[in-house]
């Protein structure tokens, strides 16, 4: 599930075309937008405080084969939240392997590639210090 939350919708959406979801799909809780308060700490292990809120979308679904799936995602993308819940349900069903192979595995590759590229760009800005030797010896 973490993978689906880590993905951008633009990365996830194209992987969903072949997905077969057992009917009927029942939305026990249709996508609902709200917030979570974000807690932080003043330094590693320091005093906890509330730094501000972030928008969140959540929903709960039951698929035809009986499994329920849920999702909580930062942001307000209802489609992303819907599919996160559906995938969560499918991962508990007989479709598990299909979802692993067709969605999660390619998704994990895309995310890893994006995050690696970001890290390599940051790494290119790492300072190499050198020392100027002045005078004689």
């Amino acid at each position: 599930m973490g993978l689906i939350a880590r993905a951008k919708w633009s990365e996830l959406a194209p992987l969903l075309d072949e997905l077969e979801i057992p009917a009927p799909v029942e939305w026990l809780r249709p996508p609902e937008m709200g917030m979570v308060m974000l807690k932080a700490r003043a330094g590693d292990g320091g005093k906890a405080f509330h730094m501000g809120e972030a928008t969140v979308t959540r929903c709960v679904v039951r698929i035809g084969s009986g499994e329920t799936g849920f999702s909580y995602l930062l942001g307000r993308n209802a489609d992303h939240a819907r599919f996160a819940a559906l995938l969560d349900a499918l991962l508990q069903s007989a479709h598990k392997e299909f979802v692993q192979a067709k969605v999660l595995s390619p998704l994990s590759g895309l995310i890893a590639e994006r995050e690696l590229m970001q890290s390599r760009k940051a790494a290119a800005t790492k300072v190499d210090f050198f020392t100027l030797v002045r005078g004689e010896g």
């Binding site: 709200g34 308060m37 974000l38 807690k39 509330h50 928008t55």
Partner: peptide, 22 residues
């Protein structure tokens, strides 16, 4: 923000887990 329901509070953010840009 006053029109949105609060679903809860996060676990403390972990700055050691940051994917660093700077």
């Amino acid at each position: 923000r006053t029109t949105l329901a609060r679903f809860g509070t996060s676990l403390p953010l972990n700055m050691n887990a940051m994917r660093i840009s700077r």
